[in-house]
Design a protein around this nucleic acid. Structure first.
Length: 423
RNA sequence: GCGGUUGUGGUGAAGUGGUUAACACACCGGAUUGUGGUUCCGGCAUGCGUGGGUUCGAGCCCCAUCAGCCGCCCCA
């Protein structure tokens, strides 16, 4: 038997309503904030991610699905959504669009070759937004408020928003150097992971679970002190505006993002809820001021976030929240013999084209089994057709909730519609 | 990529070398002939992730492989 590839999943018919519900909600909220959908290809030139995401990141180093196409071009299934959107912005010269800033959202599968765990997939669906063309604390706050709005609209409670400012490339470099200087002399006292981190990602030492009580961690330099005055002022203004909107957050000076392009405002939304295992991040994002130029674009800046629908569903499950199930069909037609089936087939076709959702039995089951089937399919009404009904062209239209029946004429679609719509 | 753990019908699960693989739910059929959600009765895995091996004999032992889960790493 051929199995589904590791880290991927089938979303089965019994569950798709959840996805459809979430997708609709997301489209609607995006519209509220006046973001328009953008659709970019599933794969892009590998170079886009190498340059855009950063050659030193895990994503680029070991997680990309990269392949050569038949023209010997290196292509990569997109591992994240921002670089493609920025590529499209640049290519389509959106800095000249009449609508500024350019506010877009996307929802698409992303691919990362990682070891699977709960909430971590090799193919997962990200919903994300990008606001490009404006650098103002207010747009940062708009992005954050939309993010919170989304999660709260589903009734989620155990949410924690962490924010930080990681400054520009210069202040980050200076800060990293300060950390290396701080830890290097005593690095042998730290765990083996941290001894590697000091060379790869010094900031990670700060939230190491093993060494969190080490005195050098406690009194380590704080990134805020390495920000220039403008960055500090920007960050303060973001915080003030979040306060004004009553959006709760926590400043986490150790918050870093795994992609090189982030600058200034960085944030992450975590879930407190039980049942997440090692996965706690629901959504991440931040400002990317150098990215457009890095990709040969105009000197515009942007900010955005991305969330995974899979993890949103996990969060809902962890908090015991359920999404509304779709309604069943309007009508199920039971048949008693061959000629009734033939007639039912024609009636069902006619009703469907008139906008009434209906179904019938195709397995020649007994009446009792058909009624059960109607029940399972959530039919609000049923009709039984047999010899009597075929002769008189009349039938009982039964309301499955009340159990009451009304006599109707089989050819009269409007009569049937009226009764069905009474509910 | 590393470490640990699990894998039995549609689902949850018993079963740790020896005849016909428990049980529950679901499903299908029946309980005097054309009406659902209750009850009762009956049926339902030649097969125990996959491929090898050990043995007179394996779901139970060994090896490999695939997949899930947990932890690390990292992230959405």
């Amino acid at each position: 038997m051929i199995q589904i590839p590791r880290g991927t999943q089938d979303i089965l018919p019994k569950d798709t309503y959840k996805w459809q519900y979430i997708e609709q909600r997301l489209h609607k909220i995006a519209q509220n904030y006046n973001y328009k959908e953008i659709r970019t290809p599933v794969f892009e030139s590998t170079e886009l991610f190498v340059r855009g995401v950063g050659g030193s990141t895990d994503i680029v180093n070991k997680e990309m699905y990269t392949f050569k196409d038949k023209g010997d071009r290196s292509m990569t299934l997109k591992p994240e959504g921002t670089a493609p959107v920025v590529r499209s912005y640049i290519e389509n010269k959106m800095q000249h669009d009449v609508n500024q800033p350019v506010k877009v959202y996307y929802q698409a599968p992303m691919f990362r070759y990682e070891r699977r765990q709960k909430g971590r997939y090799r193919q997962f669906v990200q919903f994300g937004i990008e606001a490009i063309g404006v650098e103002d604390p207010l747009i940062d706050v708009e992005v954050l408020s939309m993010l919170m709005h989304i999660y709260q609209s589903f009734g989620l409670k155990n949410l924690k928003l962490y924010i930080n400012s990681i400054g520009d490339q210069n202040s980050r470099a200076a800060y990293n150097q300060a950390l290396v200087d701080h830890f290097r002399p005593s690095i042998h006292e730290f765990c083996s992971d941290c001894q590697v981190r000091i060379d790869t990602n010094p900031m990670r030492i700060l939230d190491c679970k093993k060494d969190r009580d080490h005195p050098l961690v406690q009194n380590a330099p704080v990134i805020y002190d390495y920000l220039n005055d403008e960055s500090k002022a920007y960050f303060e203004e973001v915080k003030q505006n979040l306060d004004a909107l009553g959006i709760p957050y926590e400043v986490d000076y150790n918050l870093v993002r795994g992609l090189d392009y982030y600058t200034h405002t960085a944030f992450e939304l975590m879930s407190d809820a039980e049942g997440f295992g090692a996965i706690t991040t629901l959504c991440g994002g931040g400002r990317y001021n150098g990215l457009l130029e890095l990709l040969d674009g105009p000197s515009e800046t942007g900010i955005g976030f991305a969330l995974s629908i899979e993890r949103l569903l996990l969060a809902l499950e962890a908090e015991g929240l359920e999404l509304p199930e779709p309604e069943g069909i309007d009508l199920y037609i039971c048949t008693l013999d061959e000629s009734a089936s033939t007639a039912a087939g024609r009636l069902v076709h006619k009703l469907r084209t008139e906008g009434i959702s209906c179904d019938m039995d195709y397995k020649h089951r007994k009446l009792k089994a058909q009624m059960k089937d109607a029940d399972r399919k959530g039919a609000s009404h049923t009709i039984v057709i047999g010899e009597t009904e075929l002769d008189s062209n009349e039938a009982e239209l039964k309301n499955m909730t009340t159990g009451e029946s009304k006599k109707i004429s089989l050819g009269d679609v409007e009569e049937i519609r009226t009764i069905i719509e009474e509910k």
